[in-house]
Structures are given as structure tokens and as C-alpha cells.
Amino acid sequence: MKRRTFLKGSLAAGVTGATMGGSLLAPNMAFAEDAAAATAADPFAATSMDDALKALGITAEESDKVTVVAPDLAENAAVVPVEVKTSIEGAEEISVFISNNPTVYAAKFKLGEGIDPAVKCRFKVGKTGDIVAIIKAGDKYYTNKKAVKVTKGGCGG
């Protein structure tokens, strides 16, 4: 019983989080459920970097204050450890894109109070390409990228 109430509570919290999380994302998700034809407007369904950025409606400025830490050569392309960090003041969101994946938009992290603007996560990288991070700070977007090489054979580069 206790567990049940707890679950409900956390679910409710999750929903509020999502609503606060992004006015940008929520309508897009609802949209995607409506029709498959709406994929162009859903950044998570975008299949190319340009489409994803267009769907999000953002243009990002390149910045060396954004750092993407990833291996030059992915040993296991299904599990590529990536760290994104920034020294930009007031960073609110960290988005990660894998430029050559079928699902380009890999993740979005919305930062809360007191958290360091740095997240570590693991991603699948289908093909040699760039891992692009976009940081939102205020009304501006900053970006940087890191090329990751993927070899199918497993050995050598």
C-alpha cells in the first residue's frame, strides 16, 4: 500500500516535472502521437542534425566553454561514455545529439537548482560522426562537438 501511494506520488511529480520541463517538448510529443506525418516537428523523431535543430527552432553559437568528453575511438559503439560540461553561467539545459544516428536527438537534461552543469551518460553511436552538445543559457544556445570514430571490426582503428 505504501509503495502504491509512493508510486503515485512520484508519477505526479514526474508529470509536473515534464510540464515545467519544457513547453517546447510537451506539445511536440502530443503532436507526434496524433500523426506520423508530424515527425518533422518532433525533435526526437528527427533523422538529421539539421531537421532536429529546425524542429527545435534553435540556432546555436559555437563556444569553447562547452566541453564534450568522449573517446576518439569507440571500443563498443553501443556503449559510448559521454560527458558534457560547460563553464557558461546560468546553463539551464544540456542537449546531446549524435549526428549520424537514426535518432539524432539523444537526450536532453534540464538542470535544476544547485546542480553542476555537467552530466555523464552513455550513448549508442551507430556510425562515425560527431557528438554534439547544445547548452541553453538564458535565451542563447551554445554548442560544441567531439568526433567519435566507430569501427565495426572491434580491433584497430
Binding site: A13, G17, A18, M20, G21, G22, L25, F44, A78, V79, V80, I98, N101, T103, V104, Y105, A106, A107, K108, F109, K110, L111, G112, E113, G114, I115, V119, C121, R122, F123, K124
Partner: peptide, 15 residues
């Protein structure tokens, strides 16, 4: 009870 991080993930995140 204060939100630290909200993450939206796609299938590109590893298993």
C-alpha cells in the same frame, strides 16, 4: 523534493 535534473531520453541512449 526539489527537482535537480529532468532528462528526456531517446533510443540513442545506451542499454
Amino acid at each position: 523534493d526539489k527537482t535537480l535534473l529532468t532528462a528526456d531520453w531517446s533510443g540513442s541512449v545506451s542499454k
